[in-house]
Design a protein around this nucleic acid. Structure first.
Lengths: 196, 196, 196, 196
DNA sequence: TATGAATGAGTCTTCATTCAT
DNA sequence: AATGAATGAAGACTCATTCAT
């Protein structure tokens, strides 16, 4: 899509569209949501959608990027002032849980992305970034003697998996507070690797 | 679908269909695979599909159940003779990795299931079973003094997440041997909870 | 279909098939009933159907003919000994009501036949026969001075219409006895044309 | 179907569709007419149909309702100024014949409706209304001493049957003028019930 | 910017009929 | 006579996308 310069009103419309799409995708899935559904939600014509997005696909990609970016921003902000590598990991985990809790609708978006060639990149990049970030902290932690001397990449994969799974299960369950979930994830991830 | 009594030839056809479908679903996704694609793969008419399955949906559900069952059978077999709770968990993890390695095409099946109301049950049941199994071993491990005294359900969720994620990443990467992956998963999961 | 000489057992099979078909057609319509439905009703394979009928269409035509024939036979029998033309009409009407009451499932068969070119003949012939029969009685009645001197064909159409409609409505209603219906039909049809 | 607000052009398209459908249904039956046939008649894409109707079924229901309504309106208009009950019935019959003559294509629509559960209501309601209307006039006629003192509902059923049948036969025959048919129907229906 | 309307390829599914055994 | 299996054309319906206004 040729980058379009949007008026403030246009900006707002675009956001309404992404919001509606996110809601519907979360409820009915990407394939279960039609462009018609999205514009009906706003009560506007179909032309509106194609004024702001080149295609339905592009919308999802944009959504994935936004989300990935938002998550990373939240993590960065959370650890900004923290020097200890182990604490950085912990704060990162807590920030992740909090972010997904606040954006639970967006969590499912990544399910469709897992298979479709058109979306996988947006997903893989996000995951790799998160893992690399964690691995860097782990490496620093090993150097600092805070973390056992294991392959940091493997550990990072593990942490990513634990956090992801805890979020998935507890978002679905909807009966645990984000704090409890974060505590559990942190405990599980760090108890095993911390040097006592 | 009214249960159909199948001749050996029919049995074989049904298996050919599920095999072709699994392959195509893995490559193009559930929504990206049409019934036409599946029957074309076997070079048979479209009616054949509907002779064996009531719908495309039913096929996926059947596939999910079969897979869930197969995994559980593999785990059960692996731990059959092992009395130690901690070792049972370890053997279960290794069996899971091996199973998914041998059935990598089926791994993606669960992605679609995550969103669609029609499939979620098949998925949730499988996950819950796996988690409950693990939790039971953990409880036994705690009683036996092998495992730290933490909430076994929480631990089980964590273990499930780690294993799932390790599998996801490494199946995609395709450059690590299942043994290495299993080792890493076991290390990550058990080091933190084991009583030294 | 090449006329097939049927064994007693074959004869019986054929009747089972027509019975099942009649029942299903009455419930779900001709288009709403598949050959599979019919044979499933008997728990036999699809080949059986095509052993006895060349096609689904042929089955319906056969059913229509049988029914038309049966009705005419019932009427003929009812009036056999009656010399008075007016009484013959009355007995014919009563026989019709009784016949349709006993064969209500077959009544609907004629609905589909009304439009489809393939079936119309079977229907039109039956109707024309009935009307001609009545018209003949009316003519005799006029000659005998029992009936007003009006166009017998017109009167016959009217009588056919009244009887048909009474049957349609009361078969659907299912709360009037066939006797009452017959009485009403007779009264309506004959009061107007009888010479006092 | 969510009520759609139509532009004049849309209004026209919708009417073109119903007209084409009526024509084709009359010729080939409801089941013998595909949505493709209908849109091909207008030379438009298949989507057009579904822009105006939720389904083929809905189209037929709409058609049935329109027709029922049109008939009733025609009858109401015909008897508006007539005070005599007997004359009201007569004018109603004549209006019916005229209406069906002018809308012969729509007459067959009611054949399919007779069997299909989805359509029966539209049909039954129309019939009941017509019968109730007639019964009311008959009752008034009885009170006024114009009509013999018989069950008005029974008489109404009979009249409905006669008129329907006359129309059916003569629409098919296509060689009698609507006036003659109306005369015959009126004579048959009223001669028998009129108080001399 | 926005709308109602239109496109048409593509989807799932049905079903009368045939056939090998 | 009978069966399970297969065929494949045909049908209803969907939906991303385009376009005239």
């Amino acid at each position: 899509m040729t980058e379009r310069r949007l008026t403030p009103r246009g900006q707002q419309r675009r956001e309404q569209l992404t919001a509606a799409a996110t809601r519907l995708f979360a409820k009915n899935g990407y394939h279960g949501t039609s462009v018609a559904d999205i514009v009906d939600e706003l009560g506007v014509g179909k032309g509106v959608f194609y004024w702001y997005f080149a295609s339905k696909e592009e919308l999802l990609v944009a959504l994935l990027h936004e989300t990935t970016l938002g998550l990373r921003r939240a993590q960065a902000q959370a650890i900004a002032e923290e020097p200890s590598p182990l604490r950085r990991i912990e704060l990162g985990i807590r920030a992740s849980v909090a972010y997904w809790w606040a954006n639970r609708d967006r969590y499912t978006l990544f399910s469709f992305a897992a298979i479709d060639e058109a979306f996988r990149p947006a997903l893989v990049i996000g995951r790799q970034t998160a893992i690399d970030d964690t691995a860097a902290h782990l490496k620093a932690g090993i150097v600092a003697g805070q973390v056992k001397d294991l392959d940091p990449l493997f550990l990072a994969y593990g942490i990513y998996g634990v956090v992801t799974q805890f979020i998935a299960v507890f978002l679905a369950a909807q009966d645990a507070s984000p704090h409890e979930v974060a505590d559990a994830a942190v405990a599980f991830c760090l108890d095993g690797i911390r040097v006592d």
